[in-house]
Nucleic acid binder design. Structure first.
Lengths: 256, 256
DNA sequence: AAACAGCGTTTCATATAATGAAACGTTTTT
DNA sequence: AAAAACGTTTCATTATATGAAACGCTGTTT
């Protein structure tokens, strides 16, 4: 827990390490479980959880397990970074989802990863479901590849320097030169495809969103199972998504 | 900072007291400002802010002020309490807002207050704008009065015992007996009005959302300026909102 | 029915880590 | 040029977080 530790408050770090455990599938935690996971002493864990509960950051359910509490919901909704983007993306995403009937995502590049700012889920039973606020690898998602393709050359090279192109499926692009070629192609055709590069059976298409200085600021993607997502639909999908992108670009550049 | 303090971690409490300062209009804070506001020592404040920044809970902007960071956005989106309600309310709210063109809210009763879980803002320039995740007084909002009106008698009496009906405007109901009569009326007519009881110039109408045991679980409201919100529209509004309520009730009771 | 194992919780001596006044180096204002 | 305001660092002091052990409780196993 060290290295070049400045002068950080250890209790606060521990408290948030405990909260970090709730990022993932497991939503309910007991004291001993969390103590085991984090390596903190049972007593310490107990007292920290107790503290967090007393202020609504955690909440106990009927079986006395801890859940993330509404104080975090409150604080999370106050985060001003990208707030305007989130707001203006909402209705266009709904519209796209209504027309295409697949899950639509809206994301930006943050810390060299895709950060999902908003989504609208497909009304169909079989669908992609991502967590808003979560991060995903950029190099094997359509949305991430678009965001990189329209970034500056320095940024792309810096990305490749810092990121290992580890395979997620057999289709993942793992060679840097092939990847750079892919980005060039994306920039030229103005959209990206993810042909089961992140997950087998999952296909995505993404389009860039620009500000009025023509810099990329976000991207919209549509994701669906390969069983439904046919290449002959791409032209149709592109025109529907582009309408949404237009709407977002207009409202961002005019109203904010 | 005491009374019957159990055994809480003071640093963690302080950290969240600092974060609490961001609840409100002021989004950007400096070290000394926050130290002054909270009463904590400058050094302590500095170190806590530093700690929170190191893990993304806070973030510095270009002028070196602290903002709420994306870690809180991530955690806030993971809060599972009422998650299903939030999700299923989204599309019906959009639909209502499209038809009525006023701001639509979706809320529940939490700690004797209205907790706003979702909203869709009016497309018009002059509009109501509330913060999702924030709390509002129940006794002078349409949404709160509906939620109370369909609660059990014990709950209502407990509410009145704990809550002072302080006036917000000249129209606020401040007499307990008048208020109880109002709740009875609301229960009978199955909707509530807020005739400028919270804020002058602001009118709202709200309808209950029930689960399949016929218990109230939430409420939808439409809010608009008195200049646009005419009593002759109420019948029309009610039928539009009821469609949305139906949609929510169906999806909640079937899919979850 | 008794023993056991799991849980959250409390105790208390110990040591660690949080604390704050003062001083520092910058930047902004006067 | 001086002063004020800012974030930051120092260091001796002391308050507080710590963890092993014991506790009481609940549900399961013997």
């Amino acid at each position: 827990m060290n290295e070049d530790v400045k002068d950080l408050n250890l209790s606060v770090l521990k408290a948030f390490t405990l909260l970090e455990a709730f990022v993932g599938d497991k939503q309910k935690w007991g004291v001993r479980e969390l103590a085991k996971k984090t390596g903190y002493n049972k007593s310490t864990t107990y007292r920290l959880l107790n503290t967090l509960e007393s202020i609504g950051v955690l909440q106990k359910n009927d079986e006395d397990k801890y859940l993330l509490g509404l104080k975090l919901f409150e604080l999370g909704n106050l985060v001003s970074i990208h707030k305007s983007l989130r707001k203006h993306s909402r209705q266009p995403l709904e519209q796209i989802a209504r027309e295409i009937k697949e899950t639509v995502h809206f994301g930006v590049l943050d810390k060299n990863q895709v950060l999902y700012l908003n989504k609208t889920e497909s009304p169909q039973g079989l669908k992609v479901s991502t967590q808003i606020g979560s991060y995903q690898k950029a190099y094997c998602t359509a949305i991430g590849k678009v965001l990189l393709a329209f970034s500056s050359e320095e940024k792309i090279l810096e990305y490749l320097k810092k990121t290992a192109l580890d395979p997620c499926t057999v289709n993942t692009i793992t060679d840097q030169h092939v990847f750079l070629k892919e980005l060039q192609k994306i920039k030229k055709q103005e959209y990206a495809l993810d042909m089961e590069e992140l997950e087998l059976g999952l296909i995505c298409i993404a389009i860039p969103v620009f500000n009025n200085k023509n810099q990329i600021i976000a991207s919209i993607s549509v994701s669906g199972p390969s069983s439904r997502f046919k290449l002959e639909n791409i032209g149709n999908y592109l025109s529907i998504i582009k309408k949404g992108v237009q709407a977002i670009e207009n409202s961002i550049n005019n109203y904010n």
